[in-house]
Amino acid sequence: MRPSSGQALVVLLLLAAPALASCGDSDNTTDDAAPPPSSSPSDPESGGSPSAPETSGTSESSGTTDATSGGTALPAACEVITAEEVGAAFAVSFGPGSPGGGGTSEGDLEWQSEDCSFEAEDLLEVELALTAPEDFTAGEFQCPKPTAIASTVTPVEGLPAPATQAWWDRDDAPPLEATLRVCTDAYNFEVQLEYEDGVDFQGDPQQQATALAGVVLANLG
């Protein structure tokens, strides 16, 4: 017996149902699938550029510090006067300057100096000692009157500007040793004389030291 048209339609619907269900499941799987992970710019393996490291908001300078910052910049003592200028003041020939340094302690004051010594063989050694305000290691920068024992200390007048005060300190015992201390508002210096024992020197050592001090003042400006 042949099936009726209604029965044929039911059979077709039953046969088509699994296929329709399969199509529906496929569409739902596609829609619900998670998207593939995106490449992070900071991931080197993904080809992106690595992110820059974090930096603080404060930058540090690596510049150098001026050793004379806040103080008086003085040239080296051997650059202030020449052997020829020393020889002209004392009327003898001197060898080239020899750099050095020293320290002085007087009462509550202590200071350092940069020195340059010149020697007239078998006669005299002349030393220039420069001191800046920052070279005072104890006490304030000032112009102290020399306090050496067994010596005569007298003030010296007539030095050109910028000199503000000067002292002549002469040892009373032979051989002759003497120091001319000259002060300014920005620096101090000493012209130190030490004669060989028993020499017969010419001229006035104080006047000669004062003449050389005038050259030092002019050269330092």
Rank of each mutant, 00 (worst) to 15 (best):
G6C: 08
P160F: 15
Q207F: 13
L176I: 05
S26L: 10
C23L: 09
S38Y: 06
S56V: 07
C78E: 06
A213M: 02
P35L: 08
G48Y: 09
D122G: 03
S56R: 14
E140S: 13
G102F: 03
D25E: 07
Q207T: 12
G95A: 14
I81T: 07
E119P: 00
S42E: 05
G71E: 10
L220F: 13
W168R: 03
V156M: 02
S117D: 01
Q165Y: 14
L15T: 03
V191M: 08
A138Y: 08
A213R: 10
L74K: 09
S38W: 08
S93G: 13
L180F: 05
L20R: 12
I149C: 00
G100H: 11
E190G: 05
S39P: 12
A16H: 02
D185Q: 10
P144Y: 04
P36N: 09
V92M: 09
S42W: 15
F136P: 01
T184L: 12
P99N: 12
S26I: 06
A77L: 11
C116E: 01
D135K: 06
L217E: 14
S59F: 10
D204L: 03
T210C: 01
F136K: 12
S26K: 05
A21L: 06
S4F: 06
G48I: 02
W167K: 08
F94E: 00
A76N: 15
W111R: 00
Q207K: 11
P155S: 10
T65H: 11
G198L: 00
E194D: 08
F189K: 02
T58L: 09
G100E: 02
D27Q: 15
G57M: 04
L9Q: 10
G6D: 12
T152P: 00
D200N: 12
L217V: 03
A218Y: 06
P18Q: 07
A148W: 05
G71Q: 13
G198E: 01
S51H: 09
P50S: 11
Q112G: 02
F141T: 00
A173V: 05
S98I: 07
V80K: 14
T179C: 05
G107F: 09
A213I: 03
E79P: 04
A73Y: 13
E196R: 09
G203W: 09
F141W: 07
V182L: 11
D31Y: 15
D108Y: 13
T104I: 15
L130C: 06
D108W: 09
G57H: 15
R2M: 04
V156G: 04
G100S: 12
F136R: 03
S62T: 15
E119K: 08
Q7N: 08
A91G: 05
G221A: 10
E110F: 03
T58A: 15
E157C: 04
R170C: 07
E127H: 03
P175Q: 06
T147K: 04
